[in-house]
């Protein structure tokens, strides 16, 4: 149905105002980030004189050179890369291991309700920061890569996302495969996994972002700063409130006294954003799938 009526004056006014509001909100999302980008490419002199807003002044790569020549930056980057690679692999395997059996109805997996009750219990009730810390410590994980991977090995919400997807798979597919003599492992690997690629992509991306962004576990489960992942290292640089079980103020003071503090930190912040920018197109494609945890009865 084509509308032939001319736009009314009120409608035009609305569209102009609407555009201004949307443009304002959109720009407001970018300005602080562009501001940091501009700082990172500007000379310290320009920053001190308050000449930098959203365009770099006295363009220089000095800050990036400083960050990239810093051994601590590379140590923390190594920890981050390791935790992302192994952490994501562990996460995705665990998610599949949980989602598949729990996607079966009660008559096919008799103990399902007990497992669900257990999951619900750990999801709803948390032991809290200190008890968790002591359990992690008792299992000998302090200052190891495993402390960044094992405590969060099973992301329960992602398990629910994949479980709900598995539930939508037509039962006939499984039944006919079972009649043909397939076992459950074959059903999972030949039927379920291939058709749930988009959902698996979603939970993988979530795991990836989560591991890349985590900072608190690194901060409290590491006694030595060389075990910090990049976000934890960054945290000790950019905020004034951090505290670690080990005294590391000497290092921080040295960093703070650096004349290039603003542009150096900005450069580091921007470097840590780059990988997210690279996977951004994939995020857009897949992450909406994971938006709705749980299901709505028809």
């Amino acid at each position: 149905m084509e509308m032939k009526i001319k736009k009314s004056k009120g409608r035009i006014l609305f569209e102009v105002i609407n555009f201004i509001i949307i443009a304002f909100l959109t720009i407001s999302c970018l300005v602080p980030i562009i501001n940091i980008l501009a700082y990172s490419f500007s000379s310290s002199q320009a920053i001190i004189e308050n000449r930098v807003s959203i365009i770099p002044q006295d363009f220089t790569l000095q800050a990036y050179k400083y960050v990239l020549s810093n051994a601590r930056f590379w140590t923390s980057m190594k920890v981050t890369v390791l935790r992302v690679v192994f952490g994501v692999i562990v996460n995705v395997i665990m998610i599949m291991l949980v989602a598949y059996p729990l996607s079966k109805p009660d008559h096919k997996f008799h103990a399902r309700k007990y497992y669900v009750a257990f999951m619900l219990c750990v999801m709803l009730f948390s032991g809290g920061m200190m008890p968790t810390y002591f359990i992690v410590s008792k299992t000998g994980l302090i200052d190891t890569l495993a402390s960044l991977i094992l405590p969060g090995a099973v992301p329960v919400f992602s398990c629910i996302v994949l479980m709900n997807f598995f539930r939508g798979v037509p039962e006939e597919l499984e039944e006919s495969a079972l009649l043909d003599g397939a076992n459950q492992f074959q059903v999972l690997s030949k039927i379920y996994l291939p058709i749930s690629k988009p959902s698996i992509a979603t939970v993988t991306l979530f795991a990836l972002i989560n591991h890349w962004n985590s900072w608190f576990d690194g901060l409290i489960y590491s006694n030595h700063t060389e075990n910090y992942p990049m976000q934890s290292y960054l945290q000790t640089l950019v905020t004034s409130t951090s505290f670690s079980l080990e005294d590391m103020d000497v290092d921080r003071m040295l960093d703070m006294m650096n004349v290039n503090e603003t542009n150096m930190q900005s450069a580091m912040i921007f470097i840590s954003i780059i990988p997210l920018m690279l996977i951004y197109p994939f995020l857009q494609k897949y992450f909406t799938t994971g938006l709705t945890v749980g299901s709505v009865k028809g």
């Binding site: 665990m94 291991l97 949980v98 497992y115 257990f118 999951m119 219990c121 750990v122 009730f125 948390s126 032991g127 809290g128 200190m130 008890p131 968790t132 002591f134 359990i135 992690v136 299992t139 094992l150 405590p151 969060g152 090995a153 099973v154 329960v156 398990c159």
Partner: peptide, 16 residues
């Protein structure tokens, strides 16, 4: 998965 959840998510509850 249940083992990991038990150690790192369930045990802290009675410990707490």
């Amino acid at each position: 998965p249940v083992l990991f959840l038990f150690i790192y998510h369930f045990l802290p509850i009675p410990a707490g």
